[in-house]
Design a protein around this nucleic acid. Structure first.
Lengths: 240, 240
DNA sequence: GCTTATAAATGAGTTTTATTCATCAGTATT
DNA sequence: AATACTGATGAATAAAACTCATTTATAAGC
């Protein structure tokens, strides 16, 4: 029998700190290896711990991955709300939401793909925190469409769920080629096209509907801009 | 050293027959266990062969899965063409395609889910036979829309790719809850709703009233100016 | 300062599965 | 009948997720 090997010096961290380190390491590894090829041993090495340590804090690989995504979603949703508040007009608000989603995918293709591939396909998806975050996010779109209905821009006989599915589904489908690494796309251009088509599909029927909603939209924007020009404080000046 | 164990009697089949058996067995197992939980040993047992035999005919688990899906797609596309030929009218034809896709998902939720989860996410998807079959399928939708444009029912300024993505994306998104086993849906009802919205989004706008051109023109100019003044977020910035 | 309880961390297993390979044995060919 | 061919076997290998008994840094109580 050999005598016990000397252990490498052990650094003990608080639970929070260690968890944060592991999640950060996992995020890197998942990003550049995908889910299956990301090894727990890779993650452990990058986080400067041993494999067993990871299982002290996470039930399994999937749970660790879920934590990574939760963190990412949290970051994203933060600056979202404030920016949306500044946007006036149904059309612009709709376009903003669409564009944001496209941008998120464009900036984090690897993580986005994994959400679609790994997380959403699980039967336990509804119990996930990510599911809840997603709901909060999609509720905003639904809210915007409702608003449009109240203002008389949109027909009131459309199912809100359907609109949500059209928007998110289209965005996703449109980005699949990019997510597989086949070429690039412009979130701005794509957002314009999608918003246009969706808007038209929802708009009130009638010969002048298109012009009508656009002028309503414009009145909003001009009101907003006029307010800013009238104020002409430091903020507005910077923005010009 | 022990003497060699007696082998179970060996049944030798033709290559084609054996492959067919294995694919059939694999399809069953994938259907009720999903991809990860479907073991090669399960499949081998159901096909009455030993694990090694499977690797004689398929490079790996993924390739076997791809074969299963190919077979399924093949079956589906067969009766598709003839039925479509009987349908008259752009709107009906569009609705038919949408409904068919919804029905396929409704009838084979397990396989559908696996296509989305396993096959489409792979970087080698474009090299797959399934990819080609999918293209053939989507080309039909594009064809119908083009036809609609020629007949003057649809606007001609819409991107065909976008229409395709809207339709498929929406279908998919709408069926995700079902695919995770949360409740049911009616392909017929869903098809109506989707077809309606899409049709409206593509349809030619109604005739304009007098003098409307001018105000539309003005709206365009003001919109542009407003965009420049607003230019605080990345959205409006593109107008500069 | 010393003892002791707590929980962070280790690293050597265990288990589960896909995959490989040397060998065997029906079937067809000469 | 001898030979080549190829379908089939099953034991072995390998890769990775996951477990656990043990160790030890840190903090709390005296």
């Amino acid at each position: 029998m050999g005598m016990p090997l000397a252990r490498s010096p052990v650094f003990r961290l608080s639970r929070e700190r260690r968890v944060a380190d592991i999640v950060a390491a996992a995020r890197c590894v998942f990003e550049d290896k995908g889910y299956d090829d990301a090894l727990i041993s890779d993650i452990a090495a990058r986080a400067d711990v041993v494999e067993g340590t990871i299982y002290r804090y996470f039930e399994n690989k999937r749970a660790l991955f879920a934590s990574v995504i939760e963190q990412w979603y949290g970051e994203m949703l933060l600056d979202h709300d404030e920016k949306l508040q500044e946007i006036r007009g149904t059309r612009n608000r709709l376009r903003f939401m669409i564009c944001r989603h496209l941008e998120a995918i464009h900036e984090q293709p690897a993580l986005s793909r994994l959400v679609f591939q790994v997380l959403r396909t699980g039967t336990d998806y509804r119990q996930t925190a990510v599911f809840e975050l997603n709901r909060a996010y999609t509720r905003k779109i639904v809210g915007i469409v409702k608003e449009g209905q109240v203002r008389g821009e949109f027909r009131s006989d459309i199912q809100l769920r359907l609109v949500r599915d059209i928007i998110y589904g289209c965005i996703e489908h449109q980005t699949w080629a990019f997510l597989r690494g086949e070429g690039d796309f412009s979130p701005d251009v794509a957002a314009d096209a999608i918003a246009e088509l969706v808007y038209r599909g929802l708009a009130m029927p009638g010969p002048d509907s298109h012009g009508h909603e656009r002028s309503l939209d414009l009145v909003d924007r001009l009101t907003h801009v006029a307010g800013r020009l009238e104020g002409l404080d430091g903020n507005a000046a910077r923005d010009l």
